[in-house]
């Protein structure tokens, strides 16, 4: 049996199989898989007996429910007003420079995806970013490089060379 199907079945067992359980299940799959593939959405539709189109329509409404393949770590840099005033562009440059990807892209090794997002609710500590569910605030280019280095050293993240 496909592991994603198992995951989906378990999530459905845990949350229930009604329409109002859809979001937690989508979130559960994204938590594990980082994104919702066509296969995942089909399986969810089947498991919950929902039209597949509705699953797709719902998932694409939410910016955290990615439907394109994402890296192991999704970096979301806040681009809203305060962060933007406080140097978000430099942060983006530092990340792009270090990971050699542009916004919207994933590193070839599949470790990092770089996205921008709207206000994270840390404006008093701008600029801010999320890496998966972890928040990092009062960023500077140096700080960002340190943070990314620590991720690069983490287990499971393999360096290209």
């Amino acid at each position: 049996m496909n592991p994603v199907s198992d995951l989906i079945r378990n999530l459905a067992d845990q949350y229930g199989r009604n329409r109002h359980n859809l979001l937690p299940i989508l979130q559960g799959v994204v938590e594990q898989e980082k994104y919702l593939s066509e296969f995942s959405m089909t399986e969810i539709a089947r498991e919950l007996d929902l039209p597949a189109a509705d699953v797709y329509g719902t998932a694409t409404f939410y910016s955290f429910l990615e439907h394109k393949k994402m890296g192991k770590y999704i970096i979301r840099v806040c681009k809203t007003i305060t962060c933007s005033m406080k140097g978000k562009n430099q942060i983006m440059l530092a990340i792009e420079d270090m990971l050699k990807i542009n916004v919207g892209e994933t590193t070839p090794d599949g470790n990092f995806s770089l996205l921008q997002t709207n206000c994270l609710g840390f404006c008093h500590k701008a600029p801010a970013m999320l890496i998966n569910n972890e928040v990092y605030t009062e960023l500077t280019p140096e700080k960002v490089r340190e943070i990314l280095s620590s991720y690069l050293k983490k287990k499971g993240v393999h360096n290209d060379n």
Binding site: H20, N21, V30
Partner: peptide
């Protein structure tokens, strides 16, 4: 899951209803 509009009360209900 990342949607500002879901703070609007009726959008929030819709969201909770999946």
């Amino acid at each position: 899951s990342g949607a500002y509009i879901c703070g609007e009360e009726t959008a929030l209900f819709e969201s909770m209803e999946g």
